[in-house]
Amino acid sequence: MAKVRGAIVVDQERCKGCGICVVACPTGVIQLAKQVNGKGYNYAVMDKPEACIGCANCGQVCPDSVISVYRVKI
């Protein structure tokens, strides 16, 4: 059966660490980093990259449009 894998790229310097993408992800991929960016925000990172299905939920809810989503069938 064809499987879908996804990945996201967050523009970390522009992320404001709001956490809205974290709760929007159905598979718990995203967490806020312990480190902060130049503006002092705990930016979003892929914590469990292998769980990403490329559904783009995170990108759609991000107020700052800083998430790009990639998807492949394998």
Partner: peptide, 14 residues
């Protein structure tokens, strides 16, 4: 991951 993050696989962005 780097084989997923390729221009042709981009499905959502700004």
């Amino acid at each position: 991951i780097k084989d997923i993050i390729k221009e042709e696989n981009l499905i959502y962005t700004k």
